[in-house]
Amino acid sequence: MSRDVELTLAAAVAVAGIAAMIWWPMDAPSGLSDEPAVDEALEDSPEEPEPEEAEPETLEADAVEPEALPPADPVDAAGDIFSYMPPGDLIEESGTGQTVQINYAPGLRFPMEAGQAYANSQVYNYGGYLGPAGGQCNAANYAYAWRDNFCETRGYGTPMCPTGVGHQGQDIRPASCQDDVHWAVAVDDGTITSIGTYSVRLMTDDGVRYTYLHLDKDTLLVEPGDTVSRGERIGYVSNEFGDTATTIHLHFEIKMAIDTGAGIHNTPVPPYVALVDSYERLIGGEEAG
């Protein structure tokens, strides 16, 4: 081959090489098409989720403690709701009640066995000699609300009352207008100190004296000197009142040494608050037996 031909071929090869460098990507692997390469790592990666839009914050209402339900009104043995007038609130024109009321016998056992009774005046209510026309068995006498009558106008010296005289105790009618049917019971442990024509007196070890009036004397279960336990039967509620019968009811008294404002006196004290408390416990099932 002549020198001129060699030079011509060499020049052609050089031109072809330069063209290949221009038209073929230098980083393309052998045997691959000229499609643009894709990064496999990026292709296989899941698309990054777009940030979720934050939901508006929900403001919870301040936690409120449920209000405690008021205690249910106590219900007696007949299913009637017990209610009572305030202590010292007497029947109109029957007297002036004491304004300061204290429970002088906390823990007292109610003086009647059954959980159905009606505290009200036997003088100023139906059947009483100062009450409205009608007999003592009138339904109004055997219905709530209870009413205090400790300071009712009577002729008994009662220094705990504003006028200095009063009733000295509380009248309580039994469940029904029946003589010798309903039991009176001991309000506390103690000793029967005396039994009169129509009275029974119970003295506790700490010197508190409880008086029961108008029990049926012929059917009493106690005698003077007997010791009795709280809740023990004493006798039937009746209408005993010497030669003249009264209405069927229990007159109940509490007598103790107390400062009356004019010194210490052994005197009847208002029993109404203690009776309300003991009655609510009785009909609420808190008394055994």
Rank of each mutant, 00 (worst) to 15 (best):
D180A: 11
F150H: 02
G127V: 10
P111M: 12
D188M: 15
P106L: 13
P162D: 05
L108T: 05
R173I: 05
H167D: 10
C137Y: 08
T163G: 04
D180E: 12
V100D: 15
C151M: 07
N149Q: 10
N141P: 10
A105N: 03
P111A: 02
A184C: 07
A186Y: 03
P111V: 03
G135I: 06
T153N: 14
P132Y: 06
M160E: 14
N125V: 03
T99C: 02
G115W: 04
R109F: 04
G135P: 03
F110P: 01
G134I: 00
S94Y: 05
V123H: 13
T163L: 09
Q170T: 04
T153V: 13
E152C: 06
L130T: 07
W146F: 13
G115P: 02
M160Q: 15
T158G: 05
A140F: 11
I195H: 09
Y118N: 01
T153D: 14
C137Q: 07
Q170W: 05
C161E: 09
D171Y: 02
G128Y: 00
M160A: 13
V165Q: 15
Q122L: 08
F150K: 04
L108Y: 01
D180G: 09
S121Q: 06
R109E: 09
A105C: 05
C177V: 07
F110H: 03
P132A: 02
A140K: 12
D180Y: 01
Y144G: 02
G135F: 05
A105P: 01
G134P: 04
G95D: 02
D188K: 15
T193K: 00
Q178G: 09
Y129R: 13
I102S: 04
I102W: 04
V165D: 14
I195A: 04
G169E: 01
A140P: 09
T193H: 02
R147F: 07
L108W: 04
D179Y: 12
P162T: 13
D189Q: 07
N125C: 08
C151W: 01
P159S: 09
Q98G: 14
H167A: 00
D179W: 06
R154A: 04
A105F: 07
Q168V: 12
G190F: 07
P159T: 11
